Amino acid sequence: MRVWSIANQKGGVGKTTSVVALGGLLAQQGYRVLLVDLDPHGSLTSYFKLDPDRVEHGMYQLFFENRCRNHDYIEQVIRPTSMNNAHLLPASTALATLERQVSGQEGMGLVLSRTLAQVWDDYDFALLDTPPILGVLMVNALAACQRLVIPTQTEHLALKGLERMVHTLQMVMRSQRRELPYLIVPTLFDRRTSASITTLREMRKLYSDCLSPETIPVDTRLRDASQQGVFPHQLDPDSRGVRAYRHLLNLLESEVAKVG
């Protein structure tokens, strides 16, 4: 299984959209895909028309009673999506209380890794949608993944969130004593605005060695897909947004091929 985290310590930058778009395109290629919602806001869960306030069995429950080692329980938690080979591990709003409940307990940073180990042969890819704050859920995502994708809105305030995210990543890599490849992806790009152009230019100056050459444009078809609860390529395979995510996926797959 390949595990990719989609993360940024700022909200509203396109994390959930990126998880869904990339996951859908992978599933279209025939891969078995697991989408994991680690955000207490439950945006990924809501995308597929589940109510995070009503999810009784999801990511939250895996942190207790050693359920993360129970394959049968995990299979019951995983839900279908609009594609047969793409599934969802949903979130509930109860995740917002997790930090306080597990504080000081050992092994809480590896719950997701243990969960994925139970279904390792069932999926080819797992894509993780993370919360915009550093805590036990973000630590779980970074510990479990082999690659990090950092969507960053092309507007000035998003640069501070990007700076925090890169700093967090460097701290985690030092503590885990391993390298975690990452790619910064400019999102919500609007070439008609000077703010987008200026911010993209700044990103290229500061992060040239880890910045995707592909920008994800503002595209209302991505929002339309969300409203219908389907993967973007199912709604409009030739939309600007889907084409951009297809190029991004090709880039990520080519990088995986280089490192084996």
Rank of each mutant, 00 (worst) to 15 (best):
R2G: 02
R2Y: 12
R2P: 02
A7E: 09
G12L: 07
V13A: 06
V20G: 01
V20D: 01
A21M: 01
L22A: 08
G23V: 00
Q28G: 11
Q29C: 11
G30H: 02
Y31N: 10
R32Y: 03
R32H: 09
D37T: 10
L38E: 02
L38K: 05
L38A: 07
L44S: 01
F48L: 09
P52I: 07
E56Q: 14
M59A: 13
L62P: 02
R69G: 14
D72P: 02
R79Y: 08
P80D: 12
T81Y: 03
L89W: 02
L89M: 14
A91K: 03
T93Y: 00
L95M: 06
M108L: 06
L110M: 08
L112I: 11
L116R: 02
L116T: 05
Q118L: 11
Q118C: 15
D121G: 12
D121F: 07
D122L: 12
A126T: 07
L127N: 04
D129I: 10
T130C: 15
I133F: 06
V136P: 02
V136W: 00
M138R: 00
A141P: 03
A141K: 01
L142T: 09
A143S: 12
C145D: 05
R147F: 14
V149Y: 00
L157A: 13
L157N: 07
G161M: 07
R164Q: 15
R164G: 12
R164D: 15
V166Q: 02
T168P: 04
L169Q: 05
Q170K: 11
S175M: 12
L180K: 03
P181L: 05
L183R: 10
P186L: 09
L188T: 03
T193H: 06
S196H: 08
S196E: 04
E202Q: 13
K205E: 13
S208D: 09
D209P: 01
D209T: 13
D209I: 07
C210P: 00
P217S: 10
L222K: 00
L222M: 14
D224E: 15
A225W: 00
A225N: 00
A225E: 01
A225V: 01
S226D: 04
G229T: 08
H233S: 08
S239G: 10
G241L: 02
R243Q: 14
R243M: 14
R246T: 05
L248T: 03
N250E: 14
N250Q: 14
L252A: 05
E255F: 03
K258D: 07
